[in-house]
Structure formats: structure tokens, C-alpha cells
Design a binder for these strands. Structure first.
Lengths: 333, 333
DNA sequence: ATAATCAAGGTAAACGTTTAACCTAGGCAG
DNA sequence: CTGCCTAGGTTAAACGTTTACCTTGATTAT
């Protein structure tokens, strides 16, 4: 049989109110004799408070929802870790949801999370989401969007980094290192970050006075397979290139693999720059030059701001400015 | 103002019991006229049922807890994904907990999960856990241990694969390919899988009649850095070796990097085999030969069995036998 | 005509907490 | 002695559901 607060009250010969106060540390008005008696009973009975019951009355579950496309994509574990770390630190718990870039699953999760009364949601929209859905519209709890924001979602806060700037810096650097025929193998162009990175790429080239090669944009998804495939296409049609700016590190790793198989020298013949700086970027040889996105930090900040919104809507929480920066390693000369 | 089941009942002019029945599909005894009226009211009012309240009475939260050392380690996202997929399919939700291989955090999470009344827990113990803790002892809900089991935890089920066999197969293969001086760079030897893999390594060598080199075991943690470091040590002390069997893929990747930096030919001069077959194993060049562990499958099965235990303790759920197998790629000749 | 059955839905207790409001006994000032 | 204060509690309503059991009117069987 489960032991409840009533059992404790009975055994300690006090009221449930008193037990509740002791359990929650609101014991200014409890004599230390009573407190110790209660605590002793709790200890020996193995009492575990039922947070579901408290949630009923406090209307707080101390639970956050995290919706991401796929935890299996190396970008997300670090993000998730960042979120979980703040959550844990602040006494919150995290529900993980993988949307698989499916709008239906996203919506289903949003409803589900609300039914479970989470206190807030951290949300990285799928790359196919171009507009707000009805499920999203009826969200009444705080939402933080990370990495990809959604037009029209109100009461949201966004954690984004300047993708355009990151791409700009990367491509500019490539040019200064003497690469002149730079292609861009990107993720799905429906996603905002992809669009922004593409823009940065274009601007960098134009500012440096170099023309983008024709058919310079190969757009696919954010996978290693696509990077591999993209380079294969380039190679097959005998494209003239000496640099590839990739939409993310996975793509870059795939590209490196394809180049390596054909015996193309990286960085001598072709330079490569990725995006994200996932753990694996330093585990390959040559190590990948990439635009570091502060993934963990983004998650951490998202969690911090969300919890802030939950706890006191009054003061607007400052979000520290998150910057990308170029990490120069071995895939550029 | 939140709209509750009472509001719906009032608006549809029925009792809350009736609303509850149609919401939960227990509507055999409800006329379709009434049902439609109720559903219409629900629709236009934007009613969202409060699962916390239902959990109060049903004593089920439809929530599972997942405790792993670190989602950032590439072994775990796939596992987690497997769990989440069944969970979602069966209408459950998943709480993610990173223990960082800390016993205190593990225990804290176990208590927390029970307070939140999860229906069951999936647990990959930290590598430092050698015995059962008091928190673990007072667990009253079903627990499945994955990958690493815990002695003395009753009412648990285990999902494990035969680590010894996997290691045995890998090392035997290396020997048949002509590698004779094989070192083992392992994870922490406090963890069971590490011990079992080591045993498999030893048995394979002895069955093949080759002697393990002296000081053949370098034990560290399951990270790329450790693999890198391990090989560096080997190189520094001028060890005579032509093969490395690694405790996991991360270690293997680190080892490859170190070898590559020194210009050592893989697989010509030195062969490498990893363990796990993480996504990255195929993204590097040469592609990593490794023992595939069905990570996703393990998670999926763990979830399936756990949900089975939760729903009907009667019939013991058969767990399909999970086998490892050697995936031969480019780091062995 | 009457008892038995049935369809459709209502009643109300219960789940385990929290918390505002209330109570009580003793101490103390005036 | 009266009135008031304080420390240390207690009481009971409320949170939003589910569900075992009851009610009612209509239909069927005898």
C-alpha cells in the first residue's frame, strides 16, 4: 500500500497541513520538536510525496516539454543537454519529443504536452513548418523557439543566433584563403536558418567581388548522406570547384568522405567549412573547419529564459547574446 | 480562464460523467446525438482535458522515465529514440534524465521520477555503479535496465546483448585477417560491458593461440579523447602493435585520429575495430569496422517490455533476442 | 397486466495534496 | 481582570477527473 500524507499525519499525530508544511520547508511556524517527529516518521515509512496531487492544487507541474526534430541528429543532444541541465538545476523535469520534421507529430505533441500540463515548451520547429498551425495557436503556456522561429506565434521568445553573419564570416574567410569557386551544399531551403546561411554566403561572395559559380546551390537535407550525394553530383558533372560551404557539419562530413574516396586533397585542392561544430567535427581527420554554434548554450539559455517566464512574467529576462564564431581547423588551408 | 469538463457538461447540458465517457471513447452507452453535441461543444470551446487530474484517479500517468549517463554520448540518442518511438506509439510520454555517471544524480532522479508517478523506468546505470543503492531499493514501479544491469535489483528486467560474444567475434576476425599484436583500449573497467568485452577479447586471442601483448589493456572512459590519448601512449612508448580493439566507436574514432596524425596506415599497418556502430562510424574515412550493437532496437524493446509490464503483469513478455554482429568496413584489411 | 430487461445517462465519492482561514492556550501590558 | 498578541497548530475546501452504482422510462416476454 502506498503511504500518503495522511498516514504520516496519523503516525506523527499531527494534521496533514503540518506534514505538508514540513515537507515543503514552509515550517517557520512549526516547532522543531514537531518537525523532527514528522521527519522521523517520513523517514522510516519511506513516504514519497505525490507530485501529481500537488500539481492539482498548485497548477504547476515543474515539467518542461522539449520538441525537436530528431535527437539522433548530432545537433540536438547538446541542445537537449543544455536544456536538461538548467531544468534539473531549477527542479524541473524534461519531456522529450521527436517530431521527425512532421507537422502532424509536432501538433500532436503540442496538444499532449498541454494535456499533461507542462509549465512551458521549448520548440525547434521542423524544417517543413512554414506557418503557424491551429494547435500552435491555442497554446496558452510560455513557448521558447530555438534555432528556428515561427512567424505569428505570439507570447513566444526566440533564441536564435545570427546565421547570416556566421555564414558570411565563413565564406569570407574561404575567399581570403584563396578559394574562389565555392559551392553551397545546404539543408532544406524551407527552413529559416538555411535561407539565412545562404544569404550570408551570397553576400560574402559579392562583398569580396567573386561571382558564385552557376548552379552553386545544392539543397537537400541536413544529413551526412546528402553531403556525400551532393559532392558526388558535383564530381559527376565535372563541376569546377575548390571550396564547399556546407549547411551543417553532417553535410560537411559526408562531403569529406566523398572527396576522400575520390582521392581529392582536402584542404589542398578543395576547402570545406561546416556549420554547428558538433563533437565529431574534431574527431575526424583532417579536423573540420566550421562555424561554431553554441548549441549547449542555446539550450541552456532557452531553459533559463523559459523558467524565468514561468516563474515571474513581470521582469523580462535578458537573454545573453549568443554569437557564432568560426573555428579554423584542418579542412581549410 | 481554463475550460474544464464541468464547463463542457454545463454547455452540452449533460453530466460530467457523460463528457468523460465520450472524451475517453467509452461511449457505448451514449446515444450518438448526445455524443455529437458534446463533441461539438468541446471543439468550439477548445477544451483540453487535464491529464493530471485523470492521473489522480486512474493512478497512471502514461509517462516513462529514461535515465542514461549522457545524451551527448552518441550511443544514447539512438537508444533514446527507440524508447521514445514505442512510448509515443503506445501513448506514453518520456522524461529524459542525464545522470553524468554520478550515483547521487541517479538516485535523485529515481526519487524524482517516482514522485512524479511515472509508470516505469528505463535505466542505464552509470559505469561507476557497482551495487544497488537505497533509492534503488525502494523503487516500487517496473524498471528495465538496459545495457548495464544491476545485481540485486529485483523486479527488474534486463535488456542486454552478449558483449562477450561480440568482442570475441571481432577479435577473432582480426586475427584471421592477419593481425597478431592486438591491444585493447577499453572504457571504464568498473562497467559490466567493459569487463565482458575484455573477456571476449582475451578468449578470442587464446582460442586462436595468440598471446596478448604485455600491458595490452589500456582502460579509460568511453570518449574520443581517451582513444586519442590511448594511442598516443602506445606510440610514445614505442609499443609494437598492429591492431586495436576499442571499447566503443568513440574510442576507435579517437584512435584513428591519432594514428592518422602520425601517418600510420589504417588498415594497412594497423587494424581497428570499434563497438556500437554509431552513425559516425560510416561517415569517416576509412569507414570504421565495428561490432554493431542494435541501439535503437534495444531502446525499442526496452520500451515495449516495460509498457507490457505496466499494462499487464500477468503474461511475461518475451523479449526478442538481440544479437550483435560484426560490420566489416574499411579499418581492417 | 406485470415482471424483467435494456438503453441512456446521472450521482457522488474518491484520488493526495495545498493553503487560506480559523482556532486555542498561554503570556503579558495596562 | 480585561484585552490583545503570538506561537503553533488545525480545518476544510478546492483542484479536475473517473467510475461504481443508481435511476428512469421504454420495450419485451410471459
Amino acid at each position: 500500500m502506498k503511504v500518503t500524507i495522511k498516514d504520516i499525519a496519523r503516525l506523527a499525530e499531527v494534521s496533514t497541513a503540518t506534514v505538508s508544511k514540513v515537507v515543503n520547508g514552509k515550517d517557520e511556524k512549526i516547532s522543531s520538536a514537531t518537525r523532527m517527529r514528522v521527519m522521523a516518521v517520513i523517514e522510516e515509512s519511506g513516504y514519497v510525496p505525490n507530485r501529481i496531487a500537488s500539481s492539482m492544487v498548485t497548477k504547476k507541474t515543474k515539467t518542461l516539454g522539449l520538441i525537436i526534430p530528431d535527437i539522433t541528429n548530432p545537433f540536438f543532444p547538446e541542445l537537449a543537454r543544455g536544456v536538461e541541465d538548467v531544468a534539473n538545476k531549477e527542479g524541473y523535469t524534461l519531456i522529450l519529443c521527436n517530431s521527425d520534421n512532421s507537422l502532424e507529430k509536432e501538433d500532436a505533441y503540442i496538444d499532449m504536452l498541454q494535456e499533461k500540463m507542462v509549465d512551458g515548451i521549448i520548440f525547434t520547429a521542423s524544417s517543413s513548418r512554414t506557418e503557424i498551425s491551429s494547435a500552435l495557436k491555442r497554446v496558452k503556456i510560455p513557448v521558447i523557439t530555438v534555432d528556428r522561429d515561427i512567424d505569428g506565434l505570439k507570447s513566444q521568445k526566440k533564441i536564435v543566433v545570427d546565421n547570416e553573419e556566421g555564414a558570411y564570416e565563413a565564406v569570407s574567410y574561404m575567399v581570403t584563403r584563396g578559394y574562389g569557386k565555392i559551392y553551397h551544399i545546404s539543408g532544406p531551403m524551407t527552413s529559416k536558418p538555411a535561407q539565412q546561411r545562404y544569404k550570408g554566403y551570397l553576400n560574402a561572395l559579392s562583398d569580396k567581388g567573386v561571382l558564385p559559380p552557376k548552379d552553386h546551390l545544392l539543397s537537400g537535407d541536413y544529413s551526412g548522406e546528402w553531403g556525400f550525394e551532393g559532392v558526388k553530383r558535383l564530381l559527376e558533372k565535372d563541376a569546377d570547384f575548390d571550396g564547399i560551404f556546407c549547411g551543417n557539419d553532417l553535410i560537411a562530413l559526408g562531403a569529406m568522405k566523398a572527396l576522400h574516396q575520390k582521392g581529392v586533397d582536402v584542404p589542398g585542392k578543395v576547402g570545406i567549412i561546416g556549420y554547428d561544430d558538433i563533437y565529431m567535427a574534431q574527431m575526424v581527420s583532417p579536423e573540420l573547419t566550421t562555424v561554431k554554434q553554441p548549441n549547449y548554450e542555446m539550450g541552456y539559455q532557452a531553459g533559463r529564459v523559459l523558467i524565468g517566464m514561468i516563474q515571474g512574467a513581470e521582469k523580462d529576462i535578458e537573454l545573453e547574446n549568443l554569437k557564432t564564431h568560426l573555428v579554423i581547423r584542418g579542412t581549410t588551408r
